[in-house]
Design a protein around this nucleic acid. Sequence first.
DNA 1: GCCTGATAATTTGGCGCCTAACAGTCCCCG
DNA 2: CGGGGACTGTTAGGCGCCAAATTATCAGGC
Lengths: 182, 182
Amino acid sequence: MPLLLLKQLPRFECLLQAALRYPDLDPCATSTFLHLLRTGDLIFESEACQLANSGISKGRFSILMLLNRHPDQPQTPASLAEEAGVTRATITGLLDTLEKDALVSRSASPDDRRLTLVHLTPKGAQLMDALLPGYFRHVASILSSLTSAERIQLVELLEKIQQGLGDDQGASPCSTANNSPL
Amino acid sequence: MPLLLLKQLPRFECLLQAALRYPDLDPCATSTFLHLLRTGDLIFESEACQLANSGISKGRFSILMLLNRHPDQPQTPASLAEEAGVTRATITGLLDTLEKDALVSRSASPDDRRLTLVHLTPKGAQLMDALLPGYFRHVASILSSLTSAERIQLVELLEKIQQGLGDDQGASPCSTANNSPL
DNA sequence: GCCTGATAATTTGGCGCCTAACAGTCCCCG
DNA sequence: CGGGGACTGTTAGGCGCCAAATTATCAGGC
């Protein structure tokens, strides 16, 4: 169940040919970029696939993971949204389905009547305990083809890219519609 | 506009602590995995952000890219779906909106009346010509912090992971519900 | 010439995610 | 006090993605 991406990457010679049409195309950078995109997609898909067996999506899993860190300590939807990197509206939807399946429960905060407290139910905790060992084994198996040194190398390279991403976003923020040919 | 991921990765000591609860958790592998997930997410977001300025989504962009390879050569929805790695139903939806914006056009095939032929309109080709230079510069800027050697290294590591992913999927295919605690 | 099966595109219904707008609650400051 | 932010969670509407069912067309065996 892929989200969207080229099924097979274009060969390098195709990129070279395309570079003739578009002088701004850097074949080396584009090739690397496509590999990153493709691998990221495969990882996402693989993770979603691993979880789908138990009928929970990535989004639901994220919520359960956050709650499972401290199972007895309720959290507000806002903090879940912040930590998951998702809007509060999305959390509302996820909690609705999770609550329907009795994996989490909502209660009102006694201190602040604006707040809702989200708890992991026994059934939810049970599900996580049943799910996580397989999940972690899956994660380990994905990286089993890399040595320790290679993993460190990979993380270093990824961090460099993340650094560049941050810089770039600062240079041309998302909201500025610098060109809108449509 | 993130899709879903931990906003800040857990520190390594947290992973070590979690490993006490879950013996299957390999802290080193999990940390690397989270870095991959996070970077992939940031890249996706960055790409979507770059394109959103022109009012087109990743999905629409993929279709336009596929058509733009040979602008005068129509393609069927099925082949677009195959190459984009997406279901035909999704293609139908994307083509609907693209056609509404007059970026592509549909026509019936004279040879096989089951087939629909999708063309890039002049307006669509014009949009791509206006969009792609900036897009390719964006791609190049993302990887500007990596040297050529580092890019090659990165691609090699990613390919190793992809290899492992394929193997793993063969070992435990998606459809087998080996454990369904729900 | 038909029936059967394969294939093409679409429709339907659902989930996850977003933005924007909403109503309720808190708190500070005049 | 009492009003104006700033915050909460939710709703409404939209898009992208999927699976499953539907309709139209082709092609092969009898």
